[in-house]
Design a binder for these strands. Structure first.
Lengths: 352, 352
DNA sequence: ACGGCATCTGCAAACATATACTCATAGCCG
DNA sequence: CGGCTATGAGTATATGTTTGCAGATGCCGT
């Protein structure tokens, strides 16, 4: 691998001159610049980013920790982050935590060893995951939490307007005449899930409906657990009366949504026929498939992009002090078939 | 940020000893090891991977270039690669090329500056993209092409058994009695697409059916182009006769599949009612949605995993010489509704 | 007491680069 | 034509780590 020294040798200039041509921080005469550039081409020289980082103490890299890249939401977030980062000359190091506290610890350590200049974190559930954050901040590495907001900690966050978004989805269901609407949440230790639950409550109240604890189903981010929990709640209920089965179901995230749909199938129920359904997050981007799911969709790309902008701002400021930044981005309600607002035709591809 | 020197100071040992504790390459007494580890904890020390890389000339990083992380297939590949890499202590740097030759050039340069020890490449279409490969190999960086096989170049490759896989999908359609089966391919400059086409031809021949050029529709990886091309081919054909509309359609990849489905919808056709449909690649993981699509599914995870193993092997061997390795992994046929093998019930969630 | 061994220290030389600094050269004006 | 000023070239040092080596220390058995 060619070095700056070889380039200097071939171009007949000093190492410093090559460096100046590369960085542009010091003017170099056209004659020498051309010779240097020619040497760079001839040698297929690529500046050693490692040595540069060591010298300048800038890795030009930021890390992003997501639960699982294969969940469609996160690649969009990562891509948003990557675009914002690239615009400032930064690269992205993306790693999975598997929503596992121990693994999150590992990857955060890895990122710190790699000397990333900032970290974007979709925090794993559990207090242990949150406990890892302060040390990082203390060490001077800016960290922005995105998508999920950890409780009990002062930290920059970027996510969707959970309360309003959930209320929007639930209001859609109440406006369709539903009076018994169940909500299927993830762990309520996460502020977002709480906020979404609050949005649900607000929407019910606004519609003059009571909030029943028996219709609030708290679950986890484990698909199998969600499925069986949902199934359990749906079966063994009468069709009417005080303990009647809900006529609509709202899921607060993509995982519980998928679990809910699987649960419905396991209980031999269809949507929207047997129960109206709406959810946070898109399950499949394509409107080609049926039943199309009424969703409150998050601006995934924008979340990643905005979080990165904030992070870069903190990096530039070289300080984690200053007021905490909390960005809430608006979601969008996409009304489709599963909520029963549109009637669905025969199976197969149809024109909506 | 604490350094190895500070750790040594706090632990009351020499720098060398700390290094030895960290690397494990030289035995250290238990007493000192404990003191060192305590100091590391107290100082929240994280070894400077950058300095280590510079000294050892090993970045312990491999790069992976994919067209677009938001296409569901690729995160699985990346995750497979990540697991294999992690098992050997390597990290993954994943970047998008946007299926764009110029951008691919940029990201490859970036990876070389980052001094990745090897590169996994899903090559962008076009000869310019392929032309970038030899320089990298010459510079001593192993490179494995995965998913897509570039033509006219000797290189390690890992992908699916394209021919057999396509033949399997098409045979499924012939076995259902279809005699006019169209194929919608991506750019035939890619060997895989050619091979899939060959599989199609072989399956037709085996079923005693003629290969008609008018039923071979070559397209691109651009969704809109595929959609309009498909629509164009489907409309303006009589229902019978020599130029009759095909009764079945096979798409050779996820992009053309999506384009095909959109095209069908635009032409006001449904599947499997108006035309049977099968494809390479899964469009949505969940079987919950209708119409469920009969697919030849690729072992995405395994492709990433295997490619990384080969790459690590080349890295270890410190040489790109030796015989070229070509791994072909088997695909799996998932028969669902769109091919018409199962009859589909009413829309909505049903038990299959 | 002493050799041998295991363990540890301290030092120095890299690794490839950036940068502040010094030095050289050329142009220019008086 | 001499000295001054720009401007550009060259040089030395530092970054955090690994690694090898020479020497120091302490402990054990003889």
């Amino acid at each position: 691998m060619s070095t700056i020294k070889k380039v200097a040798g071939l171009a007949g200039v000093s190492i410093g001159t090559v460096s100046h041509v590369l960085s542009g921080s010091v003017p170099v005469s056209d004659r020498l610049r051309r010779k240097v550039l020619a040497a760079i081409r001839d040698l297929d020289y690529h500046p050693n980013h490692i040595a540069r980082s060591l010298k300048t103490n800038k890795s030009l890299t930021i890390g992003i920790v997501v639960p699982d890249m294969t969940i469609p939401f996160f690649p969009h977030v990562i891509q948003g982050a990557e675009e914002a980062a690239r615009a400032s000359g930064y690269s992205i190091l993306a790693v999975n935590s598997g929503d596992n506290s121990a693994r999150q610890q590992e990857v955060l350590s890895l990122l710190r060893s790699q000397r990333v200049e900032g970290i974007l974190l979709v925090v794993a559930p559990g207090p242990a995951s949150i406990a890892q954050i302060p040390r990082i901040l203390e060490s001077g590495i800016p960290l922005v939490c995105l998508d999920r907001v950890p409780g009990g900690i002062e930290i920059d966050t970027v996510c969707v307007e959970d309360r309003q978004a959930a209320a929007m989805g639930v209001s859609h269901l109440t406006s369709l005449g539903h009076r018994r609407i169940a909500i299927l949440t993830g762990p309520l230790t996460l502020k977002n899930e709480q906020e979404r639950l609050n949005g649900y409550k607000a929407a019910l109240e606004e519609a003059g409906l009571p909030v029943e604890n028996s219709l609030i189903w708290e679950s986890t981010f484990n698909l199998d657990e969600v499925t069986s929990l949902c199934c359990q709640h749906l079966s063994g209920r009468s069709d009417s009366g005080a303990n009647a089965r809900p006529t609509a179901l709202f899921a607060t995230n993509g995982v519980t949504a998928l679990g809910a749909l699987r649960g419905l199938r396991a209980c031999n129920m269809t949507t929207p026929e047997d129960i109206a359904f709406a959810t946070f997050d898109e399950l499949t981007v394509e409107d080609i498939f049926r039943p199309s799911i009424t969703s409150v969709v998050q601006p995934a790309h924008a979340i990643g992009h905005k979080a990165t902008e904030i992070l870069l701002q903190r990096i530039e400021a070289r300080s984690n002090s200053g007021p905490r930044i909390e960005v809430r981005l608006p979601a969008q309600l996409k009304i489709r078939e599963s909520s029963g607002a549109q009637r669905t035709g025969a199976a197969g591809l149809t024109i909506p």
